[in-house]
Amino acid sequence: MDESRRVRETYDRIASHFADTREHPWPEVEAFLEGRQGTLGLDVGCANGRHAQLLAARTDRVLGVDASRGLLFEARTRARDRGFGVDLLQGDAAALPVRSERVDLAVYVATIHHLPDRETRVGSLDELARVLAPGGRALVSAWSTAHGKFDAEAGFDTTVDWTLPGGETVPRFYHIYAPEEFRAEVEDSALAVESFEVSSGNCYATVKREQ
């Protein structure tokens, strides 16, 4: 079975428990959004919508895209409970169902590392570049070797288990990036890096369309 489908099916299975453990937005995302606003926001790999919720406060309309239907239902519940608006779409980060040059503000966090190979990942960054409006900005993040969990210098593919209540484990594919490798991947796409940092074991790039 294709790796992207496998990851989607895994998240469908763990959606409810996963959402419960993803209550709070990441401070790095809050810092990126500080002082920014726009008409259309986009959260690629929106999961339970915790970052779509932040985007909703800064844009007129927010799209939440995720491959997992189970997670989209979690996002819908969160949006109803917390009273924010989000338009939910089931979609693939590597083939965004969004028209070109529309998005002013996007976050694509902790998602790209689930895509199966470099070509697909760079392709997904090209997709993000395509949908960004002129002047639009996005934050892209991925798990990196800088995390204390890993003892490696170079990037590598791995499987990280998710443990459900009751002890059952469900495997998820990850590509763990070396920070410089991540930066190079972003720069190989149609995105330009505006700033780059490593924080809490993740790499973050603030990006715009290449001129």
């Binding site: 489908r5 989607r8 089931q90 693939d92």
Partner: peptide, 22 residues
């Protein structure tokens, strides 16, 4: 053709859909 079910459109490429051949 992309289905809209339970209010959420499924815009996954065909090869990533539920009914795609394994």
């Amino acid at each position: 053709v992309y289905p809209i079910e339970d209010g959420i459109p499924n815009l996954l490429p065909p090869d990533m859909r539920e009914d795609a051949a394994a």
